[in-house]
Amino acid sequence: MSAAQNAPGKPASGTPAAAAFATLFLLLPAGLVLGAAFLLPLARLFGLSGSMPAGVLAPYLELLGDDVYRKVFFNTVFFAIVVTAVTLVLGYPLALALARMRAGWRALFLLAVLMPLWISVLVRTFSWMLLLERNGPINRALIASGLTDTPMSLLFNKTGVLIGMVHVLLPYAVLPIFGAILRIDPALLRASEGLGAPRHVTFRRVLLPLSMRGVATAATFVFLLSLGFFITPALLGGASEITLSMLVENLVNERLAWPLAAAASVILLALTLALLAVAGRFLSPAAVAGVGR
């Protein structure tokens, strides 16, 4: 029908095939870069991990069968879980406070949350080393306040790693939660209050459930970033708290065990993808959009 072909608002290349071609064309540059810089090396990594004379699965078996390596896996997941939990517990009230502020104050505090992201992780981690030292300002303050007699060991152990990682990753927890709370219609909170609900009930039954997608996004961000974290655990944890990414670095730089390093990388990648698949079920764009209504 000629009338339909001339319908206003329809692009000239209206057929599905042409539309698909246009989409492909638009994706081409990014696809080329991704292919050359990411997919090819990834394939090579897979290849490396299978290049041991003992067989394709040998490096994986070695990694998963050894107690030392298993402790590394455990450490990595342990840090990720604890850091995620702590950042959520610290981040939620912060995000809520931000969402409730007047515009002027909010801009200021939002800046305070974002600013650390503009400073190199390396610089921030070194700063923590200075703060957490045996004779650093934190220990001196603790002793001066009488809370402890002897300096606490805050560095080169789990405590140090956790403090540093929580600090670096906190903004990634705050921002999604803040966004989710901001999208909640304030009339819903007023409706709850008008129906007779005390504040804690409004929080538990309206605010918290409606911000859960933000919490899930935050948890996914922080957990995935924690799994691959390198600088902070390397500097604040030292030799006793090795994580997967530190292990890879060690295997490559110290031991030149490329197949093992590649296998460790593949395991980390598999772990990440598996988590993303689970999180994706909760974080589909349609589901996120459906909440704001």
């Binding site: 819903l188 007023r190 409706a191 709850s192 209050e193 309206v206």
Partner: peptide, 29 residues
């Protein structure tokens, strides 16, 4: 405070709780 006034309010855009069923919305109060 509003919650002590025993008022029934119908909002301009209804302000229904989107994460609840019809029953739960009505049952809320």
């Amino acid at each position: 405070a509003p919650r002590h006034r025993n008022i029934g309010m119908v909002f301009q855009n209804y302000a229904l709780f989107p994460h609840m069923t019809v029953f739960e919305n009505v049952a809320y109060g």
